[in-house]
Nucleic acid binder design. Sequence first.
DNA 1: AAGCTATATTCTTATATTAGAATATAGATC
DNA 2: GATCTATATTCTAATATAAGAATATAGCTT
Lengths: 127, 127
Amino acid sequence: MKLVQIYQCLCDETRLRLLNLLLKGPLCVCHLHGVLGESQVKISKHLGYLKARGLVTAKREGNWMIYALPPERERPPELVANLACLQDCTAENAVFKRDRAKLAKQDLSCSPLAAGAARGTKAKTCF
Amino acid sequence: MKLVQIYQCLCDETRLRLLNLLLKGPLCVCHLHGVLGESQVKISKHLGYLKARGLVTAKREGNWMIYALPPERERPPELVANLACLQDCTAENAVFKRDRAKLAKQDLSCSPLAAGAARGTKAKTCF
DNA sequence: AAGCTATATTCTTATATTAGAATATAGATC
DNA sequence: GATCTATATTCTAATATAAGAATATAGCTT
């Protein structure tokens, strides 16, 4: 993985916000969409950009696409370093904090990410 | 300083190479030009880009412009973190190592950066 | 002041990025 | 199989970035 490509991924505000959330764990598009409040197309395209460059992985689960950071053991050192740095830099920042707070409050029950126990109460749709 | 602006500065290979060298200390344009082997215009424009966003400072000394990272006490935390990360990520990289080696070998005597003692032997021109 | 050196700016062209609108697709459900 | 949901792609237009060529400028030196 080339260093400059990592920075190319990090040089857009929307992508930074996405990565900030993915640092908390895997998420499907609809939840990222819900937290950021940006259009579905915009979210999807930026996730595609990140995926094409190896910053995130994607796997389908039924209707949902689950995006995540690559498994820790497979992250090249430059990525490890920059993700740590990003986490550090976003820790006290208002926008990123708000996004994380919004994620924490969000109903995740529509997606396969919901904890097994809560599955029964799954919402019918995301939107 | 906005985080995304730092990344916008870091997302170009030429600018990464410039910053890699400036991490070693202040330098004038002609030495950066000499090490990178890129055109003077290209170097100057990228330095201008970095300066406009506060990643580097510039001061004139006679004919020379001396570029440097901002004084440590004035660096916002995001910049401190990202410069440390950059130093880490470039430490073992071939291109960046070669640039540093080339800088170490380079004759700096043309510029005001030459040590006082060596001033007498100053080269007439850079090129 | 004339000429030289180091550096910056302007102009132009090529390319990349970004976003929205409209549409397409994959997989589930009825 | 028709429909619905979540997500992706295509098309288009606006804007940003990057690089080179030519030229300009600031400050020395003579």
